[in-house]
């Protein structure tokens, strides 16, 4: 079949064969065309616009953007911007601690449940809820728990005769709070993920090891964890992406504050765009963040490929 198509694509007798080529391939190209047009207009153009804006000094006059060439001024300003450095730092802390905690906790739970429970359909069902319930609603849920005035946590603390908390109002407390919410939000998904991978492991391998006298700890360390590595790398990568994108929870729970204690990159970008209306500078920040993310992605993919090659020997 492919050979036949290949023959048809070679233009031998120009006019008639070009027609035949078109007829043969009309569907092939036609079915891609809508996507191509959409991407060109709504992805490629905005990205180009973004890059162009990042080299400009932009002012809004009567609802129109005025662009003036600024060279790399925006990028120079960025390197001296303490708020940008702060947002990178907060994002790093939030991402690293959130991802580490969810992956470790989720993996631990997966091993625990795997030992105890055989069939857990209802559990799988409930564990899915935090991951798919609207993030804005998750923020509402946690506001109702953490609020110093009306929160459930303070109600419980008062009943127990303990001092109440005001975490959302303190720099460290707020950062810990959004990490806590993140852990609640995503540990179940990591669990589901690792649990599925764990159930997929051929039980005869594990049995052979226990016949050979390997303890549970040894089986986990030398057999199960190595076999789970691809799944763990995958879920870690997904979690990192989610954390870098995170916006809704911070916006509603802490609004980046107090001060700039929870001002992650997305929150800082929003304030540059919509509070300072500094579009040129904001675009430069955006371009930098996009490049950082791409570098991170390429590094991860490269690392994974290296890992695979090593695994193959």
């Amino acid at each position: 079949m492919s050979a036949r198509l290949g023959a048809a694509t070679r233009p031998t007798a120009p006019a008639s064969s070009r027609l035949r080529f078109l007829r043969r391939n009309a569907f092939k190209y036609g079915s891609i065309l809508p996507l191509a047009v959409f991407v060109l207009v709504f992805v490629a153009f905005p990205v180009g616009q973004l890059i162009w804006m990042s080299f400009g000094d932009i002012t809004l006059r009567a609802g129109n953007f005025m662009w003036e060439f600024a060279g790399i001024d925006n990028f120079i300003r960025m390197s001296e911007d303490p708020l940008f450095a702060n947002s990178l730092r907060v994002t790093a802390v939030f991402t690293i601690s959130g991802v580490a905690l969810t992956v470790v906790l989720g993996t631990f739970l997966a091993f625990a449940v795997d030992r105890v429970v055989r069939q857990a359909q209802w559990l799988q069902n409930i564990l899915l809820w935090p991951a798919i319930v609207t993030p804005v609603v998750i923020s509402v849920v946690w506001l109702l728990l953490l609020s110093p005035q009306i929160g459930l946590i303070n109600k419980i603390l008062t009943s127990l005769g303990l001092p109440t908390q005001t975490w959302l109002g303190e720099p460290t407390g707020a950062l810990v709070s959004i990490i806590l919410v993140d852990v609640w939000h995503w540990t179940p998904v990591v669990f589901l993920f690792v649990y599925t991978a764990l159930r997929g492991i051929d039980s005869s391998i594990v049995e052979a090891a226990s016949v050979d006298g390997a303890s549970y700890g040894q089986r986990v360390r030398h057999i199960l964890l190595p076999l789970l590595t691809p799944a763990l790398v995958g879920v870690t990568a997904i979690r990192v992406i989610m954390s870098v994108k995170a916006f809704d929870e911070m916006y509603l729970l802490t609004f980046g504050g107090p001060g700039n204690a929870t001002s992650v990159i997305t929150i800082y970008l929003r304030s540059v765009f919509f509070e300072s209306f500094d579009y040129g500078y904001g675009a430069a920040l955006s371009v930098t963040v996009v490049l950082l993310v791409i570098v991170l992605m390429v590094a991860t993919l490269g690392g994974r490929a290296l890992l695979r090659r090593k695994a193959r020997g």
């Binding site: 905005p46 616009q49 870098v244 990159i265 997305t266 955006s286 993310v293 791409i294």
Partner: peptide, 11 residues
């Protein structure tokens, strides 16, 4: 993987 917020000005 790109945070949607970064593309806001262009969009």
């Amino acid at each position: 993987v790109v945070p949607p917020m970064t593309l806001v000005p262009g969009l």
